[in-house]
Design a protein around this nucleic acid. Structure first.
Lengths: 235, 235, 235, 235
DNA sequence: GATGAATGAGAATTCATTCAT
DNA sequence: GATGAATGAATTCTCATTCAT
């Protein structure tokens, strides 16, 4: 009878499944959840993603979340201490998946296989971003002021930077700090996905993934490798 | 190279000009402002930058702004219809300066002069970002939902992308759309500056500028050019 | 003949029916109200009548209404979008009752029965006015500017005028438009009741009813009929 | 060098002249006004009539009045202590003219000359109402609560009622109190003019005057007298 | 487990009135 | 005499959170 405190399900892949599993709300943390309770909590988490997406973190009202989740106001507080608590549950899940993804960055050799591996990895990143983008964006908002989310976000950022920095060691030209260059690459990947997702630019996710692979590779090895035939614009 | 004058001063310096011409708030739009009025309005705009910086757009209360500007609640509404109106005034000013900067992107030849020109330009970008970063960050927040700021932001983004795309034509490897690659580069530049400014990473602005120049150049011309001696880490 | 039940009771009596069907306030419009909710809403409506009576529409603060209804500020907005919304609910109820009353105007033959029928009807009008006078008075205030209430008020006025005009056809002397004469009669009835209710004049409601019956009859048939013995001054 | 305290110009007839003369605002009461000052004050009074007309008493802001009068906020308080003070000045002027008019009510014999005299008098009433209607309407609003205007209004009402009651003595049928009947007649005259002026009904002022004359005469003498040829619908 | 109702602190906004020039 | 600017008390309205059923 495991009472799961802060599960960290890991890279689940499927949202509905992930959300369905209990993402740890404070009030619910101690309690054991039956099937019905888990479903309600899942609905609330999913609703959170949706509402944070459309209104942003601060503008999101508990009322909105509750309406989307088709449940009552009171029920919300049965599972989460407040809006921040729900956000934390989401953020931790995202952070966890992000770190898992970071750990999976392939070797990135200076050959076609390397490019392809990078591209595949970027595609996974794009998927993750598409799924949790709203949370990630809200992150930036929530970060302001409060330090808890800031730390969590900085941790994820550091993880990504570190793995890229490792690939850059030796490859980066003299005078360029691999750590800083890695940071720049991560910045590019994150923000480019944001541009695509926010609909501010008219580019498909596939085209952006291909381009990010090419540019990142160029940044790493000093020479752009053309995308293999048939890979362009799958998005 | 002088380190960028910090927000307050910078904003104040521009303001008298800006407020006199474009960025006036709605209620003040119709009226002629005397010296005293212009000063008050300027204080409010500066206070806006400061408060948006520390609390973000949504969390910022008119009361905070008023306190920082050392004026009364009622006075605020003498110059701006509401918080959004003040933000609009700021955003328009930033957008305008951003576009001016975009128009100034140098030719970027594949030589030391090209890299140096790019680096100088990126330094200017970093300065601008340091001055108006809060507004730019808040932009992302304010964008959610409302379409007005979204359009303004998209316009600036498009301007930047366009100038970079022009430099990429011919240089970009086959299979990479210059427009998309330019977008990726802009994403990198913007977000990297954000990382630095938000204090999430321990990197100086100078180091980041140098790195961005190197990486961007590599992305453009397929080969990383080492940073000239003595240029690293000025920030 | 029983003296008219006084405002609070009357309004309360009607309310449960009214609130359940037509006059619901906007925010509550979509929701199903349980017993408790209906009671609270009723208290707010009654409080509205009372406060509009003592302070008039514009001077009435939501705070006053809430205090009288013995509920909280937030609760008010659970049931009504704002003061106007509550007023609308009341105005619609009044308009509806007014129109019902208009439809009930008896034939008014040129005999004692006719006068008596008219007097009874005027007594009902006076009762209605006593109960909802505050709302009716506020109506005039609220009318200014906004067209919604104006239309509602004009509709009621038209209804009353029409029924009186019908009674006047044939009876009105040549050269007098029955429609206009009817309007004059309605004006008299309305305003006279207002004078009585507002306490500006020292006349009982009963005396005014008798007089209005006599004068109206004279206007209709060209000859005043004396009030039957014992009918005068029941006020 | 007469410093005119509370002039009471009497039945001036022409608004611009009336408003131009100093209607006595508290702060200005003690001071002597030069030509310029009198003009400014006049503009403020006229603006008051206009604004009270369009927004009603309570909703009228000093700001509106000042804008219409094309003067500044500060100037207003040079002439009037506050909005109420300006309203008092207007109300007193209206009350004064009203009482003058009441005193002029002709004998009203039961013949053609009587009807014609009544009609002429009603036409004057209509003119007065057209000119000061806004003030009279606002009166009702302002009356609520405060007793000062109430008393003033009641006084005017009493004056009108008294003169009509005098004409009714002897004419009124047994069982009808002349004082009450007079009140009813006054109510009719006042409210009918309001209906016409507020635009709630599509009747010309002239038609209403004719009708009021006929109905009032019928109420007085128990028989409707046809309107003389050619008199109908002058408005 | 769930929910409708209630609450009240907090934020936005308005506007009469005062003041310095 | 006139005016632009400033002020802050008064009000409206929102929304996170608690409670009784």
């Amino acid at each position: 009878m495991p009472s799961p405190p802060r599960p960290r399900t890991g890279a689940t892949g499927d949202r509905s499944a992930a959300a369905g599993s209990d993402g740890a709300g404070s009030p619910a943390a101690g309690r054991e959840l039956r099937a019905r309770g888990r479903r309600t909590m899942g609905r609330l988490l999913d609703a959170g993603v949706e509402v944070f997406a459309s209104r942003g973190y601060h503008a999101a009202r508990v009322d909105d979340i509750v309406k989307v989740a088709q449940t009552s106001h009171g029920t919300f507080y049965l599972y989460f201490a407040n809006k921040e608590d729900l956000f934390r549950a989401l953020a931790e899940r995202v952070a966890s998946e992000m770190r898992d993804l970071a750990a999976d960055l392939p070797p990135l050799g200076d050959d076609a296989a390397g490019v392809e591996g990078l591209r595949a990895w970027l595609a996974r990143f794009a998927d993750l971003y598409a799924r949790y983008g709203p949370v990630i964006r809200a992150w930036t908002e929530a970060e302001i002021g409060g330090s808890e989310f800031r730390r969590l976000g900085a941790g994820v950022l550091t993880d990504f930077s570190r793995v890229f920095a490792q690939r850059l060691i030796g490859a980066a030209p003299p005078g360029v700090d691999p750590a800083v260059a890695a940071l720049a690459v991560v910045a590019m990947i994150e923000r480019a996905n944001y541009y695509v997702l926010s609909g501010q630019v008219r580019v498909t996710s596939g085209a952006m993934v291909d381009t990010l692979a090419a540019v990142t590779h160029a940044a790493l090895f000093g020479a752009a490798v053309p995308a293999p035939t048939g890979m362009t614009n799958r998005g």
